[in-house]
Simulated scan of single mutants.
Amino acid sequence: MAEKVIAGYTVDVNEEGYLTNPAQWNKEIAVEIAKELGIELTERHWKVIEFLQEEFKQNGKLPTIRRINKVGGISTKELYELFPEGPLVKAAKVAGLSKPASCV
């Protein structure tokens, strides 16, 4: 387990840079992680992030892209526009959650 300073906060991360303790996450950290990924967060990004976090709190795991479409009301096309080249991987990282199990 490694530590990293993001937005002035020391957080626990794994070898891929995902937070290992979601309780350490905050919006300032999200903005910095997004910048590292080349993403400037908008209201639509926050909708995805908040949905992921709520689903994780309720179910203990990340939702699938299909669930984000059906329950979250965010289309796959929009997910790819917001988080290009791997929307669930990038969105989870920005949201301070673990890497999706379905992604290698």
Rank of each mutant, 00 (worst) to 15 (best):
M1T: 09
A2S: 15
A2H: 15
V5C: 08
V5M: 08
V5P: 10
I6Y: 05
I6E: 03
I6F: 07
G8M: 02
Y9M: 11
T10G: 09
V11K: 13
V11C: 08
D12W: 10
D12V: 04
D12Y: 08
N14D: 15
E15I: 09
E16N: 13
L19V: 02
T20L: 06
P22G: 05
A23M: 09
K27C: 10
K27T: 15
E28G: 10
E28Y: 08
I29M: 03
A30N: 00
L37G: 05
G38H: 13
I39W: 03
E40F: 12
L41Q: 14
E43S: 14
R44K: 11
H45L: 07
W46H: 04
W46F: 03
W46M: 04
V48C: 10
I49F: 03
E50N: 12
F51C: 05
Q53P: 00
E54W: 14
K57N: 09
N59K: 15
N59C: 11
G60Q: 02
G60T: 00
K61T: 12
L62Q: 01
L62T: 00
P63R: 01
I68R: 05
I68V: 14
I68H: 07
K70H: 11
K70D: 15
V71E: 15
G72V: 01
G73F: 06
S75F: 02
S75I: 01
S75K: 00
Y80Q: 10
E81R: 14
L82C: 05
L82M: 03
P84E: 04
E85P: 12
G86M: 00
G86N: 00
K90Y: 06
K90R: 14
K90I: 07
A91T: 04
A92Q: 12
A92G: 08
K93N: 06
K93C: 09
K93I: 08
K99L: 03
K99S: 00
A101T: 12
C103M: 10
C103P: 09
C103W: 15
V104W: 12
